[in-house]
Write a protein that binds this DNA or RNA. Structure first.
Lengths: 332, 332
DNA sequence: GAAACGCATTGAAGCGCTTCGACGCTGAAT
DNA sequence: ATTCAGCGTCGAAGCGCTTCAATGCGTTTC
């Protein structure tokens, strides 16, 4: 492997000149720069990432912690990851993938200087990672709202507003009794922050509109989802509006309704909270509040990068939810 | 951040002793090791990854290239990634995430010493990454079979055998006319290697059994899948066995069959090629050939790690497909 | 009792890069 | 003509770690 010294020799300049020519951190004459670039091309030179990290105290890597465990909505994650990687590259950064459970990995990445900055998905109310991050000096962005964000930046869809928006929408269509079919029980038990927030917003707005609101966790399995629908329809036969916040259960809920002869939106209005492509991939296109996962990923990178150079203070950003009507809801 | 020198000072030993105590590459007395460990704990010392990479010419990182583009089966990818990350950790390696399209990223990771080894998903017949890999000195494992693997290791499910297995299974149930609903057209056009191979195996075994076999690419959208089903049933009304190799289209195919009043498996037998959880998440549990994505991920890491230490020759491994009967196929 | 050995430990030389201070040169200002 | 900037370039010091050769010391061997 050619080193910077080989390049310097070939270009007949010093190594520092090569470094400056490549980084642009000092003015270099056009002629010299050209010679350097030629030498680089000729040798196929690539800077050694470790050496660079050592000398500059910068790794040009973003650590990204994603939940690879079950029960999470895969397409949300994939889109999010894609957003992070793409935007990371635009900032000249690569992405180191860490798994949610791996606290040791987080410490390794944090203090072990593997990453300059961190983005963490799927934050829980009392997240074990928060203290580690507060202790470290690295910029971090949490996707979600922990109970105690103390100095950490957070970003997320405003799930509480999304819950309200859903209730508003159904109330606007004159529904009187509505239900939220939410995240699977295991996610709720972890108190993943978004699940709690959707519920709160939905309940609140439903109350304000004088709606009767039911809230049920909903397993992602076909059988589990079916059971929840049956249970709901049995215990609350007057429900005419459904708000489904569970990407994987959504198709099964729709299937069950159809099996029971309930037309959507004729008999029951169904509103989803999911990424656009999921809304479009159902048996019937879904009226849905978009979960802009890729956008959130990009924004997370922007936020964390901004904090890497300047030292902006911590900030919490909540994206305003947007509802797109695709015809799966109708007036009662 | 404490350095190895701080640790050495506190433990009253030399830095080299600390290094050896931590790496275990030389015998260190129990007493000394204990002192070192104590100092490490007390200071919260973490080795600087870059410095380590520079000195040892090893980054302890695996580069993983995944297709984050659309049209791919998300849950397959997620499971695969999870397999790679988990097994990578067991080998003491972290994972650097690269996107499929990013050839520059591949070169950066390859020669820029960001990664010790590479795992690439979704390999195409004439993959642009192959020449880059052949040129580099790093061990790599391709998931899929490029036309010219020249010295590179490959790993995959034996999709050709899977195609044959599907045809065998349907033939065994006395079906006479069968169809393969495969990958979306865009995937086929890329000549992603698995798509071609499934087709070949299916055609071959169907021929051997004297079956009439239809092969249709199948879009992953609800409308597209529906159309393909309609088209098939119109042009080949005698088809009684369906082999679906498209995770996302599968639910839509089943929905369409139901809409058309074709019972599964009463009127039509449906066999899938997909991960187990996808097979179980359908309206009806699917008889399916398992796509063991997580296993492939783990194995890929094992292969690449084996090549990192010893220098084993390149090798191609194809996993034997396994069919699990869950009742969605029946005798004609 | 001297020589030889093996074990635990050390010192020092890098690994390949960035960056700081210094230097020489040209051209403008005096 | 002399001074002074400022631009473009260079030299050298380190960043924090690994690793090789060498050292010291207590044991065994003849």
């Amino acid at each position: 492997m050619p080193t910077i010294e080989d390049v310097a020799r070939l270009a007949k300049v010093s190594t520092s000149t090569v470094s400056y020519a490549l980084s642009g951190k000092r003015p270099i004459s056009a002629a010299t720069r050209r010679r350097v670039e030629q030498a680089v091309a000729e040798l196929g030179y690539r800077p050694h990432a470790g050496a660079r990290a050592l000398a500059s105290a910068r790794s040009e890597v973003i650590g990204l912690m994603v939940p690879l465990r079950s029960g999470v909505d895969v397409s949300v994650i994939m889109q999010f990851v894609a957003g992070v990687v793409t935007r990371g590259r635009e900032h000249g950064h690569d992405v180191l993938l860490l798994t949610q459970e791996d606290l040791v990995g987080l410490e390794r990445a944090t203090d072990g200087s593997m990453a300059d900055a961190l983005v963490l998905m799927d934050v829980e109310a009392d997240d074990a990672r928060v203290p580690i991050l507060t202790r470290s000096r690295q910029p971090a962005v949490l996707i979600g709202l922990p109970r105690n964000a103390s100095g950490l930046s957070c970003l997320d869809l405003d799930f509480e507003a999304a819950g309200r928006l859903a209730a508003d929408h159904l109330a606007g269509l004159a529904h009187r009794e509505v239900a939220l079919l939410g995240a699977p029980p295991e996610v709720l038990e972890r108190h993943t922050s978004y699940a709690d927030r959707v519920t709160r917003g939905f309940r609140e707005a439903a109350g304000a509109h004088g709606l009767t609101a039911h809230v049920l966790p909903c397993p992602s399995t076909p059988a589990g989802a079916r059971e929840v629908v049956d249970e709901l329809l049995a215990s609350a036969p007057g429900v005419t509006g459904l708000f489904v916040h569970n990407e994987r259960a959504l198709p099964h809920v729709l299937t069950r309704l159809r099996e029971l002869g309930r037309a959507v939106p004729g008999d029951v209005s169904v509103l989803a909270l999911c990424p656009e492509d999921v809304a479009l991939a159902q048996q019937v296109p879904m009226t849905a509040i978009d979960l802009p996962a890729a956008t959130i990923g990009s924004l997370a990178v922007d936020m964390v990068m901004a904090r890497l150079d300047g030292d902006q203070p911590a900030e919490t950003r909540l994206l305003t939810p947007v509802l797109t009507d695709r015809g799966s809801t109708a007036p009662r």
